[in-house]
Amino acid sequence: MTTITDQDDIDARIQTYYGELFDEHIRLTTRSAQGPLEFQRTQEIIRAHAPEGRVLDIGGGAGIHSRALMDAGYRVEMIDPVPRHVDRAREAGVAASLGDARELGFDDDSFDTAILLGPLYHLASRADRVTALREAARVVRPGGAVLAAGLSRYVAFGATSLGRPVPSPMPGEWAALIADGTPGSGLRFPAGHFHTAEELQAEVEDAGLLVHGVFGVEGPAGLYLEQAGAVSDEIRHAALMLARAASSMEGIRDQSAHLLAVAHVPS
Rank of each mutant, 00 (worst) to 15 (best):
T5F: 02
D8H: 14
D11I: 07
A12S: 06
T16K: 05
L21F: 03
T29N: 04
R31A: 10
R31H: 02
P36I: 00
L37M: 05
E38S: 07
Q43Y: 06
E44Q: 14
R47V: 06
A48R: 05
P51A: 04
R54G: 05
G60Y: 11
G61D: 04
A62F: 02
H65E: 07
S66T: 10
D71Q: 05
Y74N: 01
M78W: 02
I79W: 00
P81D: 05
H85T: 00
R88Y: 03
A96V: 06
S97L: 04
G99Q: 11
D100G: 12
F106L: 09
T113C: 03
T113W: 06
L116S: 12
Y121Q: 01
L123R: 07
L123E: 05
A127I: 12
R129V: 08
R138E: 09
A149M: 14
R153K: 13
R153P: 05
Y154M: 00
V155K: 08
A156W: 14
T160Y: 04
L162D: 08
S168H: 07
S168G: 00
P169Q: 03
P171M: 00
A175K: 12
P183C: 10
G184N: 08
G186S: 12
P190H: 12
G192A: 03
E198S: 14
E199I: 02
E205Q: 15
L209F: 13
L223K: 11
L223R: 13
Y224A: 11
Y224W: 08
E226I: 01
Q227A: 15
Q227F: 15
S232V: 05
E234P: 11
R236G: 14
A238Y: 03
L240Y: 13
L240Q: 10
L242H: 07
A243E: 04
R244F: 01
A245F: 07
M249W: 08
M249D: 10
E250A: 15
I252M: 06
A261S: 10
